[in-house]
Design a protein around this nucleic acid. Structure first.
Lengths: 210, 210
DNA sequence: TTGGATTCTGGCCATGCGGTCAAAAATTAG
DNA sequence: CTAATTTTTGACCGCATGGCCAGAATCCAA
């Protein structure tokens, strides 16, 4: 797998094909989990869907745990990068908050399998310790991003006085909660309507009172 | 298990001890899932935690599927009954909405294991069909309850004009999303603060504009 | 071309699972 | 007390899983 002599070869520790395979397997895993559920997504099933032998997964990943971890990383980094790019284009705090919410829902609508998979994985952290780790590694950065937007909006005088941490958790929660219902049944929830409702609601809730 | 001659004995189809055992096993399952995760909650583990033999579960339940279904039923009926009792005490729509939100968080704080278990089970519905069934059986009634509150508030003139279905999904989503983060790490989220924030936010968002 | 390193295959294994069962224990009825 | 019935036990089964590995195939530099 890795070179034996050139063990610390600067930046090129992994070959091109290595990274391509890992990406392929991670994307295949997301697809399989989304359509069949995590409980049915055995290594054999994932390998079959991708069209490779089961051993390839074991060869490129330390185990199923690492594969799932990479899936989580892929889901979060993709989503966050998209949201961040939209937020950064907005000129002031109120519009950055609005961009955050709208980008979240736009990305959801375009990548439903990612969120079906995410919800499946949510329930797979056995120990309380594993749950805390997931929260610290994946969720906290999102909340911090939001918190920064809110805090700067207060400093600029656009937002009223509130606890940025609490409101960040509330915004994140509202987005995720609507997303959850949409994952269960996409026809039961109108994403665009909910997004618009959340945008106006949080605008009302954050703007400085006259 | 059941009487053989008195097969249609009016209302008493299940004995007293039968129901007691079922309740005991369901509660044990909730506790085991909350502390170890659904993936580790085998029938053997649950039986061990309860202090009975594995076969007893198979004797009182058709299989693990039925047990999990009963767990879900227990979680939702308990929660909904509490919320409904609080909502029914409120005199008008705005206060009923407030009671709904506050009761949700009050029940959460007092029954954390229930919600840890619920989140674990959320991800266990493999097929899209199973997800839809769960949504229709468990989630829709909650949304309908909320929708009724909102609609009556519009009819009475307390609330502005909005889509009751969309706003019901939004309220439910906001509650569940905050709950989710709290399940991952209870110290990262201040439930009381979030509840207060949601109450004032949805009050602002629903009240009729002057 | 050649030889070593990398990547892939398909079968194998130990483990733990849900479920079943005959027999033992406990409970209830007569 | 005794017999019938319900309930519990612990061992057992078939099965699917994640992980492993020897050898085949492929790639790549010399």
């Amino acid at each position: 797998m890795r070179s034996k002599i050139v063990q610390d070869g600067q930046k090129k520790k992994t070959s091109f094909i290595e990274e391509a395979r890992r990406r392929q397997i991670v994307e295949g895993a997301i697809s399989t989990i989304a359509s069949a559920g995590l409980s049915q997504a055995s290594l054999a099933r994932i390998a079959q869907d991708v069209g490779i032998s089961k051993g390839v997964i074991s060869y490129h990943f330390a185990g199923k745990d690492e594969l799932i971890q990479q899936v989580i990383n892929a889901l979060f980094t993709e989503t966050n990068r998209f949201i961040k790019s939209r937020v950064d284009q907005a000129p002031d705090a109120p519009r950055r908050l609005r961009a955050f919410i709208e980008a979240s829902f736009e990305f959801m609508a375009a990548n439903r399998a990612n969120f079906v998979t995410l919800v499946d994985i949510w329930g797979s952290f056995g120990s309380p310790e594993a749950k805390r780790r997931f929260n610290a590694d994946m969720y906290d950065p999102c909340r911090h991003h939001l918190e920064g937007i809110l805090r700067r909006g207060q400093e600029s005088g656009d937002f009223r006085d509130f606890s940025p941490a609490t409101l960040a958790a509330t915004v994140q929660g509202a987005i995720d909660g609507v997303m959850l219902q949409w994952v269960f049944d996409e026809e039961a929830i109108d994403l665009a309507d909910c997004a618009a409702e959340l945008v106006t609601m949080f605008d009302l809730a954050t703007r400085r009172r006259a």
